[in-house]
Each structure stands twice: as C-alpha cells, then as structure tokens.
Amino acid sequence: MSNRNIVRRVAVGAAAVLLATVGCTTGTEGEQQAAASIDEGFTIGLLLPESKTARYEKFDRPYFEEAVAELCPKCEVSYQNADQDVSKQQAQAEAMLTEGVSVLVLDAVDAKAAGSIVQQAKEQGVPVIAYDRLAEGGVDYYVSFDNKTVGRVQGTALIEGMEKAGTAGEGQVIMINGSPTDPNAADFKAGAHEILDGQVEIGAEYDTPDWSPDKAQQQMEQAITAVGADNISGVYSANDGMAAGIIAALKAAGVDEMPPITGQDAELAGIQRIISGDQYMTVYKAIRPEAEVAAAMAVAAATGEKYEGSQEHPLTEVTDEAGNTIPAVLLEPIAVTADNIEDTVISDGFYTIEEICTDQYADTELCKGAGS
C-alpha cells in the first residue's frame, strides 16, 4: 500500500475516532483547558527543530498542514523552526502559548530542555504532542519511529554492504553518530551497536553536535588521520546530511571507491549518492503517515478527546526519562539501497524518477533503466 493510501485511511480512521469519543480527556490530569471545537476551528502550534536536515521544511511541515486541513478545515497551523537553537525554540513556544494555541506539536531541539516548554503548556492547560523526538516533562502523546530499530537497520545494512564489497572482517569501522542532545540519536547509536559490536572493529566513534555535516566532515578527517583511509572498511553515519560531509572528507583524502556508508532520512541527495555508488544505504521513514498521526493526535487532544490509534498504526506506550508513561505510535523504518529505490521512495511518491535522475546521474543504472 502506498503512503498516500495509508494517509487517507489514517485520516478517515482518525476522524471517526474524533467524532466517536467526544468528551474524553487527554490525560493532562484535569488541567485541560476548555475543549476547542472542530466546527469553530482553533490554532495548532507546530515547532520544528532545524533546517539543516531537508525533511522538515520539504516534507514534515507541508504534510502536517495538509493533514490538519483534512481533519479540521477551519483550523490554522502556527509554525516556527528553531534553527537548532534551544533558546529560540523556547521563545517560539512561549509566543505561541501567549497567542492562545490550543495544542502544541513539538519536535524538540533538546529533549531535556524542552521539559520547560511542556511544563509551561501544562500550566496553561495546553496539551503537547511530542513529534519525532520524545520531549521530557510528561507530554500527552508521542509519534515517531522505532529508533533502536533504525539503528539496527543501519548496522545490518552496513555489514551487508561490507560483505558485498568483500571487506567483512577487514579494516575498521568509523561511527559518526547524531547530536548528543537528541534522544533519538542515542537510540540510533544503541541499535547500531547491538548489530555491530562483536562483528566489526570500531576504529573511532564520534557524536556530532547539531547533526552538522561540516562537523561530521571534520570528525571523519580526524578518523582518517587516526586510522588511515585505506584501513576504513565501513562508516556508520547516522543520517544523510552527515554522510555528505563524511564522503567529502574521504574524497579529499584520495579515496576513489567509497566504503559502505550508511545514512537516514532518504534525502534526495542521499538517494542520488546511492545510485552513483558514493553511499550504500539510507533509512526511509515514511514522514507523511507520521505527520498524519501527529495531526490526528493534536486535533483529538485540543478537542478534549482521546486518540485511539488505527489499524495501520496502533497505539502503544513509551516511558520518558522521568518515568512518565506516554501513549505513542511508533512507525517502522525501511532500509533503502540501490536495489529497492523504485519499490520505496519512488513507488510511494516521495520522489519522482525525474527528480532523482538529473543530468549528473543520467548514466547510473537506475536512470538509464528509466530511459532518462
């Protein structure tokens, strides 16, 4: 089933839940403000963390706005991006609460620091949906991907890539993880270690502030100096943006044939690096259903109703660092290599073949097969 069909089915199911459960509370311990009305409309605050990763502006925001429009045509979305600045996100949240949003959808720059945003919202009776990253403070709902599974998918694919390259059991693997302030990055790393530990020799490992491609490039340069370019048999990169910096460092060191390199987010540039052979894999996380679930959670919470999940995306529970039990939907990630690009990001409409097959990539196997 394509993502678009999933979205439509989730939207219909979510709307049915909203209509069938009027009067339920959202779990804010009696602090919920007077319920908003779908008929009259209300404002939903959407706070995204940064713009270095292409997905947020290109996919998350428009998909979320489309989903809200389908569930609540008279609702408005008040949107801000924090540009990876904790203080800026705090100020943005405070402004939205002052303006009277009925619910916040929060993708935190720093999960712990975001606890103060959650607390302020609770004091005003405004429910909070944690989006993609689990903010502290006892949010009302959480939607993301099974993040340890993401890391396991990356680690498994890296070993697979090394086996295909004939370098399994040789050389050393470099691990360049995500931001230390992002709890998802810790889960990605833990999941990857579950697969890699005991299977490969890890020559160097770094955490990358702000998920910065430039910092990832600097870290890779350090690793090349420490380990030697010819002794690197694979690179764990936590996302596609950092993979770009890693590849730049390897090319600057004179490496012509890249070792297997992982990624995440299925960025267009990442997909293009995969078809050209510079990057081995990425992780495709279907953002449209994630945004759709977040919208359904937000509308339910704002209207004083209980989000029940759907057949495609059942409700489960997670526990934050303070021990709060949070109702959650965790979606499944998919490994994308050159072998299944057509069956994943293209078939789901995430990218078209024309977007991928620009002139620079016209001679790749995928693009020649498409007649471009």
Rank of each mutant, 00 (worst) to 15 (best):
Q217T: 06
Q222Y: 06
T181C: 06
D182Y: 01
Q222F: 05
A204G: 05
D214Q: 11
M242V: 10
G245S: 00
A243G: 14
G191H: 02
E257F: 11
L250Y: 11
Y206S: 02
E221M: 08
I247Y: 07
A238N: 06
F188A: 08
S233M: 10
Q219N: 09
T225A: 15
V255P: 10
E205T: 14
Q218V: 08
Q217P: 08
A248F: 09
A223F: 02
A226V: 03
I261E: 07
A190C: 09
P260V: 06
A266Q: 09
G241A: 15
V235N: 00
D240L: 05
D207W: 03
D265Y: 12
G254K: 12
G263R: 05
G241H: 05
M220T: 02
D265T: 12
L250P: 12
I246Q: 00
A204K: 03
E221K: 09
P180A: 11
V255C: 06
F188S: 00
N239A: 05
A190H: 10
G234E: 01
A248Q: 06
E194N: 10
N184L: 11
Y206A: 04
N177A: 12
A223R: 00
A185K: 08
S237A: 12
P260G: 00
E267K: 05
E257L: 09
I224N: 02
K251S: 07
A252Q: 13
H193P: 13
Q199D: 08
K215Q: 15
A226W: 09
E201A: 10
E257D: 15
L196A: 02
A238V: 14
V227A: 03
K189V: 14
A185S: 14
A248S: 15
A186N: 14
K189G: 11
F188G: 01
A243D: 10
N177D: 13
D197T: 13
N239W: 04
A192I: 12
D182G: 03
Y236Q: 10
I232P: 00
L250G: 06
M220Y: 00
V255Y: 10
A249C: 11
I195Y: 02
M220F: 04
G234C: 07
E205L: 11
A229Y: 03
A253E: 07
V255G: 04
H193G: 09
Q264H: 15
A252H: 04
G198A: 08
G228L: 06
I224E: 00
I202G: 00
P213G: 07
D197K: 10
Q222S: 13
G241W: 01
N239Y: 00
D182N: 11
K251E: 14
A226P: 06
A252G: 12
P180N: 06
S179F: 02
E221Y: 02
M220C: 02
A249Q: 03
K215I: 14
A185Q: 07
D207S: 13
D214V: 08
E267P: 15
I195T: 05
Q217E: 08
V235G: 01
A190N: 10
D256G: 14
D210I: 07
Q264M: 12
A244S: 15
N184C: 08
D256R: 13
I232Y: 01
G178T: 02
G203M: 04
E201L: 13
A226Q: 07
K215N: 07
A248T: 07
P260D: 06
Q217D: 04
E257Y: 07
G198E: 11
M220P: 02
W211F: 08
S237P: 04
T225Y: 05
L250D: 01
I202E: 03
D210G: 11
G241R: 09
S179W: 02
T181V: 14
P213M: 11
G245H: 01
